[in-house]
Design a protein around this nucleic acid. Structure first.
Lengths: 153, 153
DNA sequence: CAGCAATCATTGACTTGTCAACTACTGATA
DNA sequence: TATCAGTAGTTGACAAGTCAATGATTGCTG
């Protein structure tokens, strides 16, 4: 028996295909506002946080990006005036990323579009019970592989 | 109701966290043979194909990479002697990527390690029935978003 | 069978991420 | 309170992907 035929590999491959397939749909962005998935993920996490702000290092853990990756991503969002950096009053090493009003508007527009896409290609394909079961299983795995993540995007 | 709080967004975020989390575990490669996920994916698809060969454009569709991405990936694998390019006898524009004996060996070793990781962080967390249900749901979505994919990795 | 749109692979220019090294600051400890 | 290990963020050098343009070949169509 060859290891590369193991059904567990196929299972993971299936998960990857589903995720990739959905990512591709989501990144097609007909309105052309051009936000990558990690950029959108950062924006939506900020939108959901108290004060629409989060420390860069928290963004790094939540998004599974390296801290330098976050630095550069935040640079890009800042030059587009979607967020601003704000010094942390209690720790001078640290910095917040804060959503601007323009950022709030954009994240809402994009989220609304993404909901349609997700519904068309994922959640809408399943009946409610099947979806709940599916999400329950995902949570089991998530709690094991990535316990640090709280809010999801 | 803000669109960014829609449960469907959260559902997709959950899927992403699971996939990311697993990808990170799989890429840690203690033996340090240094194959990225797409590289491994290409190798395993070749291993499973008749003659251990596949045309570059088929690799592109199966992996969701661009054709130029495949060109460069195949370049890397070729300099490492894991595959060779072979001209297609029936279409002179086209080229096959063919697994070398060394490639076969490596893909088997890596697959065996990956099975352990997948089992530890994914399939082994679920009882058989729960796993089957989960895979069934994944197939429903996969058939919609990525019907072109046959073998999975 | 000549013409031509479509297909396959490659290349150049660019984007976005990583790792390792660095600066600045924090907070526990001797 | 002086030290110093650890943490936050940034930077340089690089890795690996994208898109648009290109060259070669194919196969339908008038």
């Amino acid at each position: 028996m060859n290891a590369y035929e193991d059904p567990r590999i196929t299972a993971f491959g299936l998960l990857t295909e589903v995720h990739n397939g959905l990512m591709i749909r989501l990144s097609q962005d007909p309105a052309g506002r051009g936000l990558s998935a990690p950029e959108f993920s950062v924006l939506i996490r900020l939108a959901r946080s108290p004060g629409q702000k989060l420390r860069l290092s928290d963004l790094a853990t939540q998004t599974s990006l390296s801290t330098s990756g976050v630095t550069r991503l935040v640079d890009r969002l800042e030059t587009r005036n979607l967020i601003v950096r704000e010094p942390c009053p209690t720790d001078r090493r640290s910095a917040f990323a804060v959503l601007t009003p323009g950022g709030v508007t954009l994240v809402n527009e994009l989220a609304a579009e993404n909901v349609k896409i997700i519904d068309r290609w994922f959640t809408g394909l399943l009946d409610p019970e099947q979806l709940e079961t599916f999400l329950g299983t995902l949570r089991v795995i998530r709690d094991e592989v990535h316990p640090g993540a709280t809010a999801g995007a």
